[in-house]
Design a protein around this nucleic acid. Structure first.
Lengths: 346, 346
DNA sequence: ATTATAATCTAAAACGTTTCGGTTGTCAAC
DNA sequence: GTTGACAACCGAAACGTTTTAGATTATAAT
C-alpha cells in the first residue's frame, strides 16, 4: 500500500539509487531525470519511510524529554510552558520530541537507559536536577548528548542552562526586609532538588546578611503543589507568633499559601505578604496579583533545546553554561498598602 | 561500539537467529542455550536497537500527539494534566509518545501528514476538535488509527471520548438561575471549536427554557486565556446594566474574570457570581474557590490513550464512543452568601 | 535398520533507506 | 585511435532486527 522508492523506480524505469539521489538533490542526476522522478513521486504520493531513514542514517532526529511527574494527578503549568518552548524550537530545527512521564525514583533510570541504549533519541533534555543526580551521572558515563535545565552539586562538566535562584530569592527577601518585614517564613521545596536547595540558601543567606535570625520554625517544606502551599501556610499561621511574610519556593505553593492566608481572614499584601517564584501566567492574574521572581520559562525551553541541537550537530558550543539572572516582579501581594502598580526591579 | 545481536552471536557461537529467538522467549531454544545467550547479552550490555525493530516489525509502538498551541507563550494547565494521563497510560501499555506543538492553521496538517505518511507513529490523539475538522477528515480519508477527545459536527464515524459540555453548562446555568440570577453573562470560546459551540448552546438553551432573554450583549468571546477572561469581564462590567453572574467557557477565563470583578471592587460570590469549566487544580485553590464543571482530565487522557491502543492492536473496541457526564462543583464563587462549604451536585 | 517425531538450530530474505564504488557512454584532446 | 575527463547512472552492501522455511540432530517407534 505505501509507496516506496522501489515503486517509483519501477514506474520510471530508473534504479532505486537514482531515485533516491534525485529526491535528495544529488548533483549527478540529469535535470530531466530529476524532473521525471519528482513528478512521479508527487503523483504516487510518495513520503519517505522515516523509520528506514533513521536506521540507515544512524540517527533519529528526535530529542527525548522525560517529565518528572509528582503523583498521579500531575499538573504544573510550568511544564506546559517549558514544553511549548522546546517543542517549538525542536520543530524549527527539524527535530521531533519524544516525551515520557515518570516520577523520580527507581524505574526512572530504566526509561533513560532504554532511550539511550536503544538509540531511540539523539539527545536528552533533563529538568529538575537534583543535587546528586543519577540521571546525569548515567548520561555522562555513557557519553550521551544531553543538556540540563539546572545544575548539580558534584559538578561534572555538562552543558546546562540555569537561573540564579539564590540571587532571585535573595532579591525577594531583601525586598521584604526593606519593607519592614522581620518575621519572614519560607516554604521550601524538596532539598534534594538543586533549585530547592539554592532557593532556601538565598533566603537564609539574606536573612543572616541583615542580621535577622533564621528560625527553623519558620521554614516548612512543601511538594510544589498548591495543596502543599496551603498546608504549609496553615502551619505557619497556627504558630504562636505568626509571620508577617511568607515566601514560597514556587508560584503554585505561593498561590496555595495566599488562599490559606485569606481563609484565615487576613488580607494578602497588607496583613501578610506572599511571594512566589517562576512567574507562571497565573501569577499575574491571581487576586491580589503575586509578587514573584520571574524566570523566562518558555525562553529557557527554547535555549535548552537549541544548545542540545548544537551539541548533537557537533557544532562548537557558543555557550556550554548559561546562567540567567532572574527578575523580581513586585505586585500587590507584597506591596505596601499604599502602592498598587506593578513594578519590575531587577 | 553498540552491542548488536551479531556480537552476541559471535561471542556465543550461535547464529543471529538463535540469539534473537532466545532473547524473545521463543520455545524452540534449549534452556541451556537460552541461559548462555541471556548471560552474554547481559554481560555485554546488549539493548536492542529500537529503530531496527520498528523497521522490521512495521510498527513503531509510538503514539503521536500534536498539541494545538495558541500563541507563542502558551501555557494551559489543562494540557499538563492531559499529557500526564496519556503519558502514563501509554508507557503502561508499552508505547512511547511523540509530541509536537503547532498552532491551528495552515502548517498544522503537514505535521499530521508527515507522521502518517512517514509511518512515524502507529496512531494519533486529536484534541480540541473543531466543528469542521480538517485533521479528522484527513485521518479518516487515510484510514489512519486515531482517537479524538471531542466530537465534530459532520460526524464521520470515528472513535472519540467526549464530555457532555452542553449538559455541564446547562447545569451550571440552572444553578445560577435557581439562586435568583437573571442577568447572566457568558464568556464564550472560539465558536469553531466544538466544545466552544456546545458550551454556548448549553447556556442559551437553558436561558430559553427558563424563559429568560438571551441578550447578545451579555455574550463575549475570549481565547481561553486568563488575560482574555479579564478583558471580557471588563467589557461586561462596563455595561450600563451589569450582570450579576458571569459564566466562562473554561476555568482559566473564569479566573481572569474573577480578577477583574475583584479589581472593580465587587465581591465574587456575593455581588457577582463567577463559574468556570474544567476544574483544573487551580480552581479549588483560587480565592474564592471557583464553582466549575468538572471533567476528569487526567482520566480522560488515560481513556483516550487506551481506546487508541485497543484500536491499534485490533482488539474489538468495547466502546468506540464514550460520553462522560460532567459534574457541577459548587464552591464559593457562586455560593449564596450564607453557605460556604463545597457541594457536589451531579 | 528404517522411519517418524520432536527438539534445536540456522541461512536467507525482508523491512525501506542511503551510499560506496563502480560502469557505461560521449566527447575533446593529443 | 588511444587517452582522459566528465556526466549520468546503477548494483550491491549496509543499517540491526524479525521471521519464514527449512536443515540437522537426537530420540523413539516400528
Amino acid at each position: 500500500m505505501p509507496v516506496t522508492l522501489r515503486d517509483i523506480a519501477q514506474e520510471t524505469g530508473y534504479s532505486v539509487t537514482t531515485v533516491s539521489r534525485a529526491l535528495n538533490d544529488y548533483d549527478d542526476v540529469s535535470p530531466k531525470t530529476r524532473r521525471t522522478i519528482c513528478e512521479t513521486a508527487e503523483r504516487l504520493g510518495y513520503h519517505p519511510n522515516i523509520t528506514a531513514q533513521h536506521l540507515q542514517r544512524q540517527r533519529t532526529d528526535t530529542l527525548g524529554f522525560i517529565i518528572p511527574t509528582t503523583g498521579p494527578r500531575f499538573s504544573d503549568p510550568f511544564f506546559t510552558e517549558f514544553l511549548a518552548g522546546i517543542g517549538n524550537e525542536a520543530s524549527a530545527q527539524g527535530y521531533d520530541l519524544l516525551v515520557s512521564t515518570h516520577s523520580a525514583g527507581p524505574g526512572e533510570l530504566d526509561v533513560y537507559r532504554r532511550f539511550v541504549r536503544g538509540k531511540r533519541v539523539d539527545g536528552l533534555l533533563v529538568v529538575r536536577t537534583r543535587r546528586h543526580d543519577s540521571r546525569i551521572s548515567y548520561l555522562l558515563e555513557q557519553h550521551f548528548p544531553f543538556v540540563a535545565f539546572g545544575r548539580t552539586e558534584c559538578n561534572g562538566n555538562f552543558p546546562f542552562v540555569d537561573e540564579d535562584g539564590r540571587a532571585g530569592i535573595a532579591r525577594a527577601t531583601q525586598h521584604l526586609i526593606d519593607h519592614g518585614h522581620r518575621r519572614i517564613a519560607f516554604i521550601a521545596a524538596d532539598q534534594d532538588l538543586m533549585f530547592g536547595h539554592e532557593r532556601l540558601r538565598g533566603y537564609t543567606d539574606t536573612m543572616r546578611e541583615n542580621n535577622l535570625p533564621v528560625d527553623d520554625g519558620l521554614i516548612v517544606e512543601g511538594d510544589l503543589s498548591q495543596r502543599s502551599g496551603r498546608r504549609a501556610a496553615r502551619r505557619l499561621l497556627d504558630l504562636p507568633e505568626t509571620p508577617t511574610a511568607i515566601m514560597a519556593s514556587n508560584d503554585l505553593m505561593a498561590l496555595g499559601a495566599m488562599a490559606t492566608v485569606q481563609a484565615h481572614g487576613f488580607e494578602v499584601g497588607k496583613d501578610v505578604a506572599v511571594t512566589g517564584f517562576d512567574d507562571i501566567p497565573l501569577a499575574e492574574h491571581s487576586h491580589p496579583p503575586l509578587t514573584t521572581v520571574r524566570q523566562p520559562i518558555y525562553r529557557i525551553g527554547e535555549m535548552v533545546c537549541q544548545v542540545l541541537v548544537d551539541l548533537i550537530r557537533g557544532g562548537p558550543l557558543k555557550r556550554r553554561h548559561v546562567i540567567l539572572e532572574p527578575t523580581l516582579i513586585v505586585r500587590q501581594s507584597s506591596a505596601p498598602a499604599a502602592s498598587s502598580a506593578t513594578i519590575s526591579v531587577g
